[in-house]
């Protein structure tokens, strides 16, 4: 009987597990190297020192100290960077240079299993890096708290950008192209979507562009403690982006053809 390929019935829906496990075994080896921990933390810590400690004492945003505003933004940025970059570069390298991606697509697992396994692995890497920033946040800012919407935003952000990482990893034709996507899309988004300053006072045209950026909605939701109207819009936008990226990533894996 022909299978459509969404549900991996033979594995009871767990066809994604070996894909995920493989990434975790490789991740474990990386964790044992000191360089990984350092590289996951260095950029957000630099921002924390440069902006947080520089402006922290003199600036208040919406009645909250600047550090209390900045740290959730750094968590969002760090989870985006790690979920996205690890998935996109690993997939790109595995597909074009190491050819280990071909082992997955020549196995009797569905495209959805590969997609889920890769995205979940990206989420773990994003959550790991974020948890380091969260620990630093608790240590340096009394205003920093974690609530259910914070966790929702964080998980959805990791899912969204890991899915986007699959798309980039599948579309790029060389490893250098991955850096181009990062420089032209991910990096500007990190700076202009409310990580370091509130976006509500920006000019309307800029504001409209910023509103289209997925990370903007993570930054809105991650700082909310109540599910108000604005939080619901951001949650809906994030869910829509997450679904769109996931489906397109799945489609690219399913249509893989050398």
């Amino acid at each position: 009987m022909k299978k459509i390929g969404i549900w991996d019935a033979e594995t009871g829906g767990f066809g994604w597990y070996p894909v995920f496990l493989r990434e975790m075994l490789l991740f474990r080896r990386k964790l044992l190297k000191l360089g990984y921990l350092f590289s996951a933390m260095v950029v957000p810590i630099i921002y924390l020192i440069a902006f947080g400690f520089g402006l922290g004492k003199s600036v208040q945003i919406k009645g909250v100290g600047y550090l209390g505003f900045l740290i959730p933004g750094l968590v969002a940025m760090s989870s985006m960077n790690n979920s996205y970059t690890w998935v996109s570069s690993a997939l790109n390298l595995n597909r074009l240079y190491f050819k280990t991606f071909q082992v997955l697509v020549q196995s009797p697992v569905t495209a959805s299993s590969i997609m889920i396994g890769e995205v979940m692995a990206g989420m773990v890497k994003g959550l790991f890096a974020s948890s380091l920033i969260i620990l630093v946040g608790f240590a340096v800012s009394p205003d920093f708290t974690i609530h259910p919407l914070f966790m929702t935003a964080l998980l959805l952000n990791c899912f969204m950008f890991a899915s986007l990482g699959v798309i980039t990893g599948m579309l790029t034709k060389s490893h250098e192209d991955t850096a181009t996507y990062t420089n032209f899309f991910i990096m500007p988004m990190a700076f202009f979507s409310g990580t370091f300053f509130p976006v509500d006072k920006t000019p309307p045209v800029i504001k409209a562009i910023i509103f289209m950026m997925p990370l903007t909605h993570t930054n809105i939701l991650i700082r909310k403690s109540l599910l108000d109207h604005q939080a619901m819009i951001s949650l809906a936008m994030m869910a829509a982006y997450a679904a769109l990226f996931f489906i397109y990533g799945w489609y690219l894996i399913k249509k893989y053809n050398e």
Partner: peptide
């Protein structure tokens, strides 16, 4: 029903021999 030994060596070189086979065995049920 197929097994492939590709021209390019596409083993996971950072994993052990056992781990390579474990993942492949799981992928192939």
């Amino acid at each position: 029903i197929i097994g492939v030994v590709p021209q390019e060596n596409n083993l996971d070189k950072e994993l052990t021999a056992h781990e390579n086979l474990l993942i492949y065995g799981m992928l192939h049920h």
